[in-house]
């Protein structure tokens, strides 16, 4: 049973306590640790934003996936692709991006784009944001980087391509300026609470994190898998212990569990039966290696 623990970044959580909790979860045997900030939790205030905390935690989480969140609705896809490629480089191949798809909270009034409330349109925008990110990660062919001190060739621009993405919502030329990262791209995790979400974002989803809906979680687990998710985790808020979380996930037919934990609760977790060690986050999750163009071809 794969476990990716999600830590709550509460308002009064100190950076050192968050890092200690993350380190403790890593020692307990989880495959990855993510951070849910105020925008993810729907609260008014958190200590910090998620993805930069994830970067700071990469040192504590050696050999364990480090998952940051960021909206797939607000902001620029070029920045998203750059940030998570950077996190993958800085963590040595253990980066994950948990994509936020909500249009509520402070960020919804802070950015240029505003939702009309049409969920299908939101999911379409998010899908585009992810497609552009994937195309940017694929903008460097394998072997485009070849530093040769003798000849003076540092990279081969004939193997680095523009993406020239144009739609009503986005115009992104590329290529990405960050070279391919150790996993080639971060692991993409997407929260799923409806069949529509699973279907719209499935083509870009490595790991679906299912939140049970009115009909329970089993139909969502099936929908996420059918839509293209390689792995399906069940989100369980504040489980009593690793065993009870795993039992719920197994009952839902999921491949693993994503327990949402406070800093205090995280410190009590131990002996999590999780995936074996691996050289990348994808390996720890049991995912196939990310090949160039694997989801954009």
């Amino acid at each position: 049973m794969v476990t990716v623990a999600l830590l709550r970044v509460d308002a009064d959580a100190s950076p050192s306590a968050l890092l200690a909790a993350a380190g403790s979860l890593a020692a307990a045997g989880v495959a990855g640790v993510g951070f849910l900030d105020a925008a993810d939790l729907g609260t008014d205030l958190g200590a910090t934003e998620s993805s930069l905390l994830a970067t700071a935690a990469a040192l504590e989480l050696e050999g364990v996936g480090v998952v940051g969140t960021q909206s797939g609705l607000y902001g620029f896809p070029y920045h998203s692709a750059r940030r998570f490629a950077t996190l993958d480089h800085l963590s040595g191949g253990y980066a994950g991006w948990l994509v936020r798809t909500t249009s509520s909270g402070p960020e919804s009034l802070g950015h240029a784009w505003r939702s009309t409330g049409d969920r299908a349109a939101e999911l379409g925008r998010c899908s585009e944001h992810l497609e552009i990110s994937y195309r940017l990660w694929d903008s460097w062919e394998d072997g485009a980087q070849w530093p040769d001190k003798e000849t003076g060739d540092f990279k081969d621009d004939s193997r680095i391509h523009s993406i020239d993405y144009v739609s009503e919502a986005f115009q992104v030329a590329g290529p990405l300026d960050v070279p391919p990262s150790p996993q080639r791209r971060p692991v993409i995790l997407v929260g799923v609470s409806t069949v529509a979400e699973a279907a719209a974002l499935g083509p870009w989803t490595d790991v679906a994190v299912v939140t049970p809906g009115p009909d329970g979680s089993a139909p969502l687990v099936v929908a996420a898998r059918e839509a293209g998710a390689s792995l399906v985790l069940l989100r369980v808020d504040d489980p009593a212990d690793p065993a009870s979380a795993a039992t719920l996930a197994a009952a839902a037919g999921a491949d693993g569990v994503a327990p949402v934990l406070s800093v205090e609760a995280a410190l009590t977790w131990s002996d999590v039966a999780s995936a074996p060690a691996g050289g990348t986050f994808a390996e720890r999750l049991g995912l196939a290696t990310f090949e160039h163009g694997s989801r954009t071809a």
Binding site: L52, R82, A85, H89
Partner: peptide
Amino acid sequence: PVHAPGRTSVTGTRVDPLE
């Protein structure tokens, strides 16, 4: 935040600066 074309490196590889 833009790719610098050219076969030689000038200032090294770019990454997100806040990260």
